[in-house]
């Protein structure tokens, strides 16, 4: 039983790590600021959730797992707030969204 649980948790955590790497590749690869934010939100949602789910299977029903749940809730409540505030600040400072035909990156004043 415990071996099965171990394997499931390792698979979940590795998947989470893969999604984190994919999100990071997206942040590096995407053109323009707003498109990069979409890639970063993959890390914050799927990557973080899968890793924390895997850790939850490891820890079982203890105080540590309650703290992991609080950590998960913290990520889920605070990461959209932080990304919205960043996007709003960039928008109000006039960062232009990237257009497919323009080719260059969306930099403006900074």
């Amino acid at each position: 039983m415990s071996a099965v649980l171990d394997i499931v948790s390792i698979v979940l955590m590795t998947l989470g790590g893969v999604f984190c790497v994919i999100g990071a590749i997206g942040v590096l690869r995407m053109p323009g600021f707003y498109t990069r934010m979409h890639a970063a939100s993959v890390i914050d949602t799927l990557g973080a959730s899968l890793i924390i789910l895997g850790l939850l299977l490891q820890s079982g029903f203890t105080l540590a797992s309650a703290k992991l749940v609080i950590l998960w809730l913290l990520i889920f409540f605070c990461s959209p707030t932080a990304s919205h505030s960043l996007a709003n600040a960039a928008y109000s400072r006039g960062v232009k969204p990237w257009e497919p035909d323009q080719g260059a990156s969306s930099s403006s004043k900074n």
């Binding site: 600021f33 914050d44 924390i52 932080a82 600040a89 960039a90 400072r93």
Partner: peptide
Amino acid sequence: GPTVFDRALAANAIGTLAML
């Protein structure tokens, strides 16, 4: 970079990874 907001976004994501 290129803008300061890109850097802040990357720093935020790095923070999430550090938490994990």
